[in-house]
Design a protein around this nucleic acid. Structure first.
Lengths: 204, 204
DNA sequence: AGGGTAACAGACTGAAAAGTCTGTTTACCC
DNA sequence: GGGTAAACAGACTTTTCAGTCTGTTACCCT
């Protein structure tokens, strides 16, 4: 049974560095050889495990990317009370990892969406699915926040959710230039401002 | 002197369709032949006018893209009174053209920034420059809004400007999927909400 | 009107990249 | 320990693409 383990291990290895290289260089601008060079692996090995570059990429999206987006951006908010503060903390954490040039999976996702838009509808669907899961969970959290008395009952949860995702993706796109620390600070500041409108007003 | 005119005309032609194709397929995923096929032009003609694919792209960014971003996203707000309403109208107009799948140059800009990030610092600088001009003009408009009594004096103009650009770029990225009309509506709605905090409160 | 140059045509070159195929090593099973 | 299949190595093929080069057409100037 050790073979099974080895198989899984190498596939994982190939997928993990694949995600990193695809993120850094873009899908169309990275060759399989680029990834194999990083792995010190041969073409024979790669095409033994994966059918094509496209099938390989889809497996990365479904296995790695989806899980990572879920664990970093969705799970920390899911089911928690006081969703607004949780969202601020969660976004701030994600932006902090981004600041140190680590992989921020929300950004990776939006990068790929940008890259595949209008080119590969198949892959686009897989990416959009992740986005939808994110959005649905934000909406659920906001609705629960209404019930629990943390969120203003009059707000449009879906509109707020999309606005949140949009602003997050946008600020990450802007953070590619140098002063990402300042951008993160400004963003969180304005996000807090925006949340003032969203939070439940205690009847004085 | 007709030759000069013809030269300008063909260069314009090559640049214009180049921007469209680069936007649709991405820089790395479009070949010069793709563009020439669209133009029914030969390689000889292309390389007579431009030195390389990169120099060609830079000329597009500096000539076409910069002007277009300026005329559609900056000029309509510049020097106007009541900047907040002007911004809403301007963004809404831009999103409307996007809805009909016409070229939305703010989105084109952010797409290219995403694509060239970490790959070509040279081109990145040209793109970031456009972004900076946009940001600076938004800040100026907000400051003028403070003087003219339309904008709350206590807000951080720079933070608001980056937050605006971020949200715009973000919503455009999300609009690549189907229901862009709904997204536009939600976005403008939340933008108006956000501006309630920014606008000048009349002392009651 | 005809020489000269700008503007363009299109075959060609070299490099890169996806995918194939044949051979080799490694682990498992009897 | 030897047969077998999984796991991997790496040369090879085919296509694509950026850029070159030589030849041709159109315009301009005197």
């Amino acid at each position: 049974m050790e073979k099974q383990l080895k198989r899984m291990a190498t596939m994982q290895r190939i997928q993990t560095t694949g995600l990193e290289v695809f993120y850094q260089k873009g899908y169309f601008n990275t060759s399989i050889d680029d990834i194999l060079k990083e792995l010190s692996l041969s073409k024979g090995a790669f095409y033994y495990h994966f059918q094509s570059k496209e099938e390989y990429f889809i497996s990365i999206v479904q296995n790695l990317l989806f899980r990572k987006v879920y664990s970093t951006l969705i799970e920390p908010i899911e089911g928690q009370e006081d969703p607004l503060n949780k969202i601020v903390v969660c976004f701030d954490n994600a932006l902090e990892t981004a600041e140190h040039n680590f992989l921020d999976y929300g950004f990776v996702l939006s990068n790929f969406i940008t890259e595949f838009n209008g080119k590969n509808p198949d892959i686009m669907n897989y990416l959009q699915d992740i986005l939808k899961v994110w959005e649905v969970n934000l909406v659920t959290a906001l609705q629960k926040g209404k019930s629990d008395g943390f969120v203003n009952r009059h707000i449009d949860s879906e509109a707020v959710a999309t606005y949140l995702i949009a602003s997050y993706i946008g600020i990450r796109t802007l953070m590619v230039e140098g002063n990402s620390k300042m951008l993160r600070y400004k963003y969180i500041q304005q996000l807090r401002q925006y949340f003032r409108l969203i939070e439940h007003k205690e009847p004085a």
